[in-house]
Design a protein around this nucleic acid. Structure first.
Lengths: 191, 191, 191, 191
DNA sequence: TATGAATGAGTCTTCATTCAT
DNA sequence: CATGAATGAAGACTCATTCAT
């Protein structure tokens, strides 16, 4: 692991558990074992570390979305698979998930960074747009649909992390069904 | 308006727009027109102000939920009305909504405060539990259902506030329909 | 007990146990049951309270010094009695003793107050001066003798208060004997 | 002189002359020429500085006690030499002396620090214990004897510093004689 | 590249004192 | 005489960032 990675990993962990303001650079230095000066050799500022983490998270997220999704699969099956991929990523990367939830909206994240991060969501957005166009999904504003489904995954993830809910296959299917029933076009006889 | 209210209102506004750490007590003092010492006469600490705001928000939220909801109404109509109530509250009280979203999860909010705040959600939870029991809603874990629907309202609210979406009656109905279609029990012939 | 006495008594107790800076006026107000404004009605400032306590202590001290001391008694007997009087006063008035020891030297005590307090020591000083003149005591600088003996009493008092030493008559006699042997004129055959 | 020494020396001087509460860290910083942050780099808190000074003082004190004291010297000669050593140390290190007198008893000094400081007194205590055992000194509680003699030195020192007394060899001898006459065992014929 | 001591502006909080009632 | 809410200046301490090595 490079020093740069040591820094971002340590920062991610500390920031998620303590908050940004409660995580001084000196602590990142001590816990990561990288000297203050060295941190500033690799990053211009504390904000830059946070922006870097933001991008790392989005990137890894983007890399997971389309796993095991094949164009040849039925639309609904792909919907389910993508939903599961996102959930699994969130579930298995708790630190990254919590980072996104709690710090992703802060003005610390620059508009540039935010723009760079958006690209990783494109496959999902395209997929949903396709569903609307094929009239498999309801003809609803694309943003609303995206955010709603995303929110559904987030809801399950939070319950999973809080351990108030044991994640079973049944439960997972039920959760996805809420999304599917919510957005798919029941008037389309083909479905 | 009492001094105490002046303090919390000013703090709410500043904190939502700038963040907690970016809002020094001196600024709250200056903007509210209440002297530093007086603030500390009414609140033990900055944290206590934030906890007070948290409770104020939850309380006002709780007071809005059941507006125009009558036991004699059909279940679905009540579902729609409650959904609208929550959305309207969020939409009209942008500061409070953003406060909840961005700061509600922080450890600054004490467990005691959090517990006190929970009570205001009870009517909704009871309403959903009733729906499940009557088999009008799917037989799904109550928490998952609650969080999911809550997330749906949040999704629309955020788009509304960001002005990327113009809120029309049609859109609102569509958004609620996503929730309803997602959770209601289509196998129940009575429905 | 008048309000004024309530204030000084409470202040004495709190200040001795916590220190001056660690005893806010608000606490004196709360513990004494006298409102802030009322305190400032009776005393111009916090310093004035402390100066008042200083004088009260010295006054009570002065009133105890010569108890049971009779001009007709032998010099040595009077020496022993005065020593005991001072010790007893210190021993029985621990708060006052500690106040004098710990705060009596501070610049908070004005020079005026200090001068006013000096008068209460005069009987002892006169008594020692008389002993020197009569050649019963060594011909030593009067101040040195006074301070030395005073220090001897203080030493025993502190051990007594700290409970590391149980005060018996024997011990007390031994302690006084140190003083007496230290300052009396052994070359004076009359003795 | 290291930065750490600059800090404690400046603090010692300011605190003795102004008091602890009257000496803000900002002043220590300005007068010592060491930045605020640097002070806190070397010391955890203002209290830690004070505890450090306490130990420094005790240490230097301990190093002076036994100067020019030789086991082969007569007991009385050693008694006089040690008394002089302590006095000289107090006299020449007025700041340290006044620090000990005025702040040494405060609860700011931790029990740990106090314990650490005790060790430097051991040589004197051992010396006095030896005198008692040899029946050269009166058979009196060791603590009482120690504190009494210590108080005698303090008395002279204070007069010396206050300049109300000019310190001559005669005076010094007289002062020590008070102690010696006070504690030595006149019934021991060997003496 | 790497180090970590040094910097000082900025923060929360305290508290003696005042004043309207 | 009595009250206690209100005031704001001042203090201890933090921490992102720099720089000499």
């Amino acid at each position: 692991m490079t020093k740069k990675e040591k820094i971002t990993q340590t920062a991610l962990q500390l920031i998620v558990n303590q908050g940004i303001q409660e995580t001084p650079m000196s602590q990142i230095s001590k816990v990561s074992g990288v000297a203050m000066g060295t941190i500033y050799h690799h990053f211009k500022s504390k904000n830059e570390i946070i922006n870097q983490i933001y991008l790392d998270v989005k990137k890894e997220f983007g890399a997971s979305i389309m796993k095991d999704v094949d164009k040849k699969m039925e639309y609904k099956a792909r919907f389910y698979q993508i939903w599961k991929n996102i959930f699994n990523f969130f579930y298995q990367h708790e630190l990254m998930f919590r980072f996104s939830q709690h710090f992703g909206h802060l003005p610390i994240i620059t508009e540039t960074t935010r723009q760079e991060g958006l690209v990783f969501y494109e496959p999902v957005i395209d997929f949903l747009a396709e569903g609307i166009q094929l009239k498999i999904l309801k003809n609803i504003d694309l943003q609303l649909m995206t955010e709603t489904i995303y929110g559904n995954v987030v809801a399950l993830t939070q319950l999973a992390h809080s351990k108030t809910l044991k994640i079973t296959n049944t439960l997972l299917e039920q959760a996805i069904a809420i999304s599917w029933d919510g957005v798919h076009n029941s008037k389309n006889l083909e479905q």
